Every structure is written in structure tokens, then in C-alpha cells.
Amino acid sequence: AFLLCSPHNPTGTVHSAEELAAVAALAARYGVRVVADEIHAPLVARDTAFVPYLSVPGAEDGLSLMSASKAWNLAGLKAALAVAGPEAAEDLARMPEEVGHGPSHLGVLAHTAALRDGGDWLDALLADLDDNRRLLTALLAEQLPTVRYRPAAGTFLAWLDCRPLGLGDNPAEVFLARGRVALSPGPDFGTGGAGHVRLNLATSPEVLTEAVRRMAAAVT
């Protein structure tokens, strides 16, 4: 099986229909089942289109996993959905019954309310995330100009390339020890993560501004 993170965490990349169709074609050629983790789908920027994996040609035997937990901050109320393509429905039906017993009653109600009635709240959140991406770009340009950052179209996360700072493979350790800013270490995300950190943008402008100020102070 191939676990596809779409939109991608931590880079925020939103895959195009052409890219997803190419994945489906490769999976069919080599007999691989694609399981698409689409938990960040509601958090795609308003000027970017999200393409569900199961909507592209050749994805009929794929599986999609989704939840309201990220977009509506419901991670503490664990619940999720597994959606099968038409050629994978029987495989999903064979999963043991107890697999579906994890969500609590409150979790199911909260996720239902979010997906059914939480559109206005989500629209406001997306606007705030757009503002924070622009703010982070400006703050880094002013205070940490050598850190490379490309605002992403998906997720509420920022992937920062800190290699020019010369802080080693895990800059998060330095920012925590010297600046008291907790970031996700890049090496935790596998190949290519050395020298990077992941920053959570889902916060207030004041907190984001203070975080970058402390990060800059930690390397001066």
C-alpha cells in the first residue's frame, strides 16, 4: 500500500489532478493500493482547488481517510471517516467490526456539526490563515532573512528551511533551548527534513510575531 498525504504535511503542497492521476496509474501498474490521508483538505487556501484522490481516473480501488479534527480543532474528540472507491468497497467492508467502535458519541456529534454547520467558521479561519502566511513572510524577511519559506496552499503549517543558519540537522532544539519556542523538528518527517522546522500558523498574529522575534534572538 502507498500512504498518500494530500494535502501534504508538512510542506502544505496541494496535489493537482494530473499528479494524482499519475499516482493512480503507477499504483495500477505495480499492484499497489493507495490510501489517501486527506485530513487537511478543508484547510486549502481559498484560491486553490483541492482534488479528492477518489475523483481522478484510475483511483477506483483507492481509499480516502478524512476527519474534521484538523480544520475545526476537534482532535481531542477522536473521529474519522474511511471512504472506499467503488472497487474497494468490499475490502473496506471486510474490516473487523471493532475498527469502527473508536469514535465516542460526543466525537461523532461534534464532527457532524462541524461538517454540516461549520462552513462560516471555516471561511473565517481560512482568511486568518492567509493573513498569517503573509505576516510570517514579512516577519522572516525582516528578522530571519536567510530562512527559506514558501507559503503553501494547504494546511495550517509552515515548513521553514533553516539550513543557512548553520544550526545542524535539528534547529528546533536550538530555538527551544535559546528562544523558548517549540517547533516540530524537521528530521521527524523523514528524508529531506534535516535542517528544517515546522511552525504552526493557527495562532494569533501576536503569538506569531513573538515567536519569530524569539527565534531571531536565539540566533543572534
Rank of each mutant, 00 (worst) to 15 (best):
A153R: 08
A1F: 11
M66W: 09
R180F: 06
A194P: 05
A202Q: 14
V44L: 13
A141Y: 11
G166F: 08
D61F: 11
P103F: 04
G102Y: 12
E60A: 07
G192C: 07
D37T: 10
H40E: 11
D61L: 09
Y149P: 00
V197W: 01
L63H: 00
L208D: 01
D47N: 13
L43N: 02
G195Y: 01
V83H: 14
R214C: 04
A82P: 01
L115A: 15
S104P: 10
P187A: 14
L144G: 06
A71P: 00
T112M: 12
S64A: 15
L157A: 08
S64E: 04
T203F: 04
A202T: 07
K70P: 00
V44M: 08
P164K: 03
D61T: 14
L4A: 01
H8F: 10
A110V: 09
L208W: 01
L135V: 10
A21R: 09
A152W: 01
Q143K: 15
M95G: 12
R134H: 14
L199H: 00
T203A: 14
E142C: 11
W72Y: 10
A138S: 14
L126H: 12
R213E: 14
L126Q: 08
V174E: 09
E173N: 07
S64V: 07
T203G: 10
D47K: 09
E90Q: 13
D131W: 08
L125Y: 03
H15F: 13
V34K: 00
R150I: 14
N200Y: 03
M215A: 06
A71I: 02
A45S: 15
V147D: 01
A68L: 00
E19R: 02
L160H: 03
N9Y: 10
L74S: 06
N132R: 11
R33T: 14
R148H: 13
T13H: 11
G102N: 10
A182H: 09
A68F: 05
P164Y: 05
S204N: 11
P57W: 11
P145G: 15
T203K: 03
A21W: 05
D91I: 05
A82W: 03
A79R: 06
A1Y: 09
L122F: 11
L140I: 14
N9C: 07
E18C: 12
I39T: 05
L20W: 03
S55A: 15
V32R: 08
A218M: 00
D131C: 06
A153S: 15
D128V: 07
H8T: 05
H15N: 10
A49G: 01
S55K: 13
H8I: 04
L63R: 04
L136A: 02
R46S: 14
P164A: 10
P205Q: 00
A110K: 05
G58R: 06
A216I: 08
A36Y: 03
D188S: 15
L81H: 13
A82V: 15
A79Q: 05
N200T: 09
P103I: 07
G31H: 11
S6G: 02
I39Q: 03
G76T: 09
D117W: 14
Y149K: 09
L160M: 02
V56I: 07
G85C: 06
S104I: 10
G12Y: 01
L135I: 12
T13F: 05
A152R: 00
C162T: 07
L199S: 03
A114C: 13
K78P: 05
